[in-house]
């Protein structure tokens, strides 16, 4: 039991992932959908950051005078930096789309948009 709780980072990852996905699926407001999508992506960032932690490790900056120093794995951090950039771009593009949608349809509610299109 305690062992399972010990992985609390992963629990947070899973919960955040589901919260994000739930928001994306259930919300009709496009902005809220994007918020959910961001939460969904952030959850994955957390997973990567968690896995790079090495017990007792320090920041991965090479210290030649300490040959026995343990470092955290730098690679996932680099990866996730890239992924954050991708995530930000996606959110930015999504928001830009929402702005355009608001301009042309006058609403950001999904149901109202489809209703307008159905009316032609």
């Amino acid at each position: 039991m305690l062992e399972l709780l010990g992985y609390y980072n992963y629990w947070v990852f899973a919960v955040l992932l589901m919260v994000g996905l739930y928001a994306v699926i259930t919300r009709g407001n496009l902005i809220k959908k994007l918020l959910g999508l961001s939460i969904f992506q952030s959850a994955v960032f957390l997973m990567y950051i968690t896995m790079d932690k090495v017990a007792g490790g320090t920041a991965p900056i090479l210290q030649p005078d300490l040959p026995d120093q343990i470092y955290s794995n730098p690679l996932p951090q680099v990866l996730i930096l890239t992924a954050i950039v991708v995530g930000v771009s996606t959110t930015a593009l999504g928001l830009a789309l929402v702005v355009r949608i608001r301009e042309t349809y006058g609403t950001v509610e999904e149901a109202e948009i489809y209703e307008q299109d159905a009316r032609g």
């Binding site: 593009l93 789309l97 355009r100 949608i101 999904e110 489809y114």
Partner: peptide, 8 residues
């Protein structure tokens, strides 16, 4: 626009 949003 809504189509792309869905795709996104």
């Amino acid at each position: 626009l809504p189509s792309v949003f869905k795709y996104l």
